[in-house]
Write a protein that binds this DNA or RNA. Structure first.
Length: 550
RNA sequence: GCCCCCGUAGCUCAGUGGAUAGAGCAGUCGCCUUCUAAGCGAUUGGUCGCAGGUUCGAGUCCUGCCGGGGGUACCA
């Protein structure tokens, strides 16, 4: 019996109570089943009686007792107890709990996947690094988190398109091209230009590809540096991200919207909706209509369009492409964008609560030798995604970034990242997976096959704990998708790995020495395999490999 | 001034209104003649920043403070 089955059984018991007049009220929309934290509280617990007590006008313990009476006879349920202020503590029959192992093995790679978001088309935008420098550690956090979120959303049934926006229009790209031009000519780069080492490399690559560039008139040369340099930076970003196992379905160019007239059209649409006005020679969007503390400029008095204008066009473009929801993963330094994006959506006639999801992630700080390393693309003292992967590898890198909530300001110590040792939780989880594989190989060598399954033999407390943990996986994935919190998957895997290691330590899968192979061994091989599957499925959601040997 | 995030064990952090607040690391003490010791067990460690409020119940929700970080351009 899975937690979902149990939830259904409780709901049915409540319905019987209501029909029989045990207590009054409306049937609950949902019945939350939780794993009991304390083994004395059985396998599962629910607070449904306490939630129903008030509308029913009855004591919670009385309501609980009525539900318990109707729930206890259900097949697979061994015991139902009323406890504390009105909890229902449910103990499953050993065989009923153990049955989960077979269900997981037969579901395989699809175990944990669900359809809670089926039918939803989601646009997920993350990283969106400017094409004026390498992808750095700050972006890397969103790469790990965003790509895991993409996987989690897809596993929950959504149709997800991962998108990378390229800010290839405006002053920064111009400064970048000017910096390339200056470096190529051996001149000093402007104070507000780009000074990183990579600028020299890119300038050299442009000159190598276009040996005649320095002979062109200055403006034509800068045009070459702009287009070629831009392409090199985008390719570099794509390559770095791919190496980090992060793939985007769409790389969207800001410049293309300016060129196609899409930005103009977006401004027209906003104007038609009545949220645009002209003052002091500039064109403004009345964002204060939607809670902003001041209005924002769309077109500056010098005629240049601001980012906000392009952002509006981009949002409208996404909606035109049929996305029900647009998720943006932005750094905390962009949190002011929430209001503006919501305004854009509202001005376009959408309900921002329905179509927008702006996730604000706190910034990553990097500490080395006791003091902070500044992450600035322009200063040149940056840790890039490539540096990061070189130091810790893809698995440890992705995992160590994805296991924290986006709300947590993250302080990473270079020495700690560099140390690829066993105090990194990723190894703990991966080792558990490798162990399941090893146990599977050993069992197969001894001729233990998955032909006999007697779940009633999985009666050790360690087995109850492990089975209950395995049963949690689908709801963990669903919650991670709903809350856009993929770190929950990582935390869950750490807990599961712990339960597995403890079970492995206490319950032998293969007999010791020349011991006889019994149905206990065969049944435990199922449980081992079920654990292997869940660990592998979970690691896949994080984009981390599940090694068969370590 | 206004807005966002954070404040939980020595450190880094989990914790979708539930029971005695958890994990890893650090510290202390143990466990390899038997399936991987990248493992397991035991133990030490807490005014969940402070004060009110909401209710059967608050680390969690609300209000106000205190402390830290970030944002608040006709920058990108």
């Amino acid at each position: 019996m899975t937690p979902a089955d149990l939830s259904g059984a409780v709901r049915a018991a409540v319905a019987q109570c209501l029909a029989a007049g045990d207590f009054g009220g409306a049937p609950p929309a949902d019945v939350l089943i939780e794993r009991a934290k304390n083994p004395e509280h059985g396998d599962y617990t629910t607070n449904i009686a306490m939630r129903l007590a008030k509308p029913a006008g009855r004591a919670a313990r009385d309501v609980a007792a009525a539900i318990a009476a109707r729930l206890a006879p259900v097949e697979g349920i061994a015991r139902v107890e009323v406890a504390g202020p009105g909890f229902l503590n449910i103990t499953l029959a050993t065989a009923s709990l153990g049955e989960l192992a077979r269900a997981i093995v037969s579901a395989g790679a699809s175990y944990g996947h669900g359809d809670a978001l089926a039918g939803q088309r989601i646009n997920l935008e993350f990283v969106s690094a400017n094409p004026t420098g390498p992808v750095h550690l700050g972006h890397t956090r969103w790469a790990a988190l965003g790509d895991s979120l993409r996987r989690v959303l897809a596993a929950t049934g959504a149709e997800v398109v991962a998108e990378h926006y390229i800010n290839d229009f405006g002053a920064q790209i111009d400064k970048f091209a000017a910096s390339l031009d200056a470096v190529a000519r051996g001149r000093e780069v402007a104070e507000d230009g780009y000074h990183g080492e990579y600028v020299v490399d890119v300038a050299k690559q442009v000159v190598d590809a276009h040996p005649d560039v320095l002979g062109l008139p200055e403006d034509q040369a800068v045009a070459v540096f702009t287009s070629v340099g831009y392409q090199l930076m985008v390719d570099a970003a794509r390559t770095s991200l791919q190496r980090f196992r992060v793939e985007f379905d769409v790389w969207f160019s800001e410049r293309s919207m300016h060129a196609s007239g899409e930005v103009e059209a977006a401004l027209e649409l906003l104007r038609e909706q009545g949220h645009v006005y002209d003052t002091d020679g500039a064109v403004w969007l009345r964002t204060t209509d939607f809670g902003d503390d001041r209005d924002r400029v769309l077109i500056r008095s010098n005629g240049e369009k601001t980012y906000l204008a392009a952002d509006a066009a981009y949002y409208l473009d996404k909606r035109r492409r049929g996305f029900d929801r647009c998720i943006y993963l932005l750094g905390a330094d962009h949190h002011g964008y929430i209001g503006r994006l919501r305004t854009i959506a509202a001005c376009a006639g959408d309900d921002p609560d329905q179509t927008l999801d702006v996730l604000i992630g706190q910034l990553v700080r990097l500490v080395r030798d006791g003091h902070e390393v500044r992450l600035s693309k322009r200063a040149g003292t940056i840790v890039t995604l490539d540096d990061f992967v070189d130091l810790v590898g893809v698995d440890a890198g992705r995992y160590s970034l994805a296991r924290w909530s986006a709300d947590t300001p993250l302080t990473l110590d270079v020495a700690e990242i560099t140390r690829s040792s066993n105090d990194n939780p990723v190894y703990y989880v991966q080792y558990a997976h490798a162990r399941t594989c090893n146990a599977k190989r050993n069992a197969a060598e001894l001729g233990i096959r998955l032909d006999v399954f007697r779940p009633e033999l999985l009666d050790s407390p360690h087995e109850s704990v492990l089975l209950a943990a395995l049963g949690d996986f689908p709801s963990v994935v669903a919650t991670a998708a709903e809350l856009r919190a993929p770190h929950r998957v990582a935390r869950y895997l750490e807990e599961l790995a712990g339960s597995y290691h403890r079970w492995y330590d206490a319950c032998r899968i293969i007999p010791s020495g020349d011991g006889e192979i019994t149905d206990v061994n065969r049944t435990r091989a199922w449980l081992n395999d079920a654990t292997r599957i869940v660990l592998a499925n979970g690691l896949d959601l994080l984009g981390v490999s599940a090694p068969e040997r370590m």
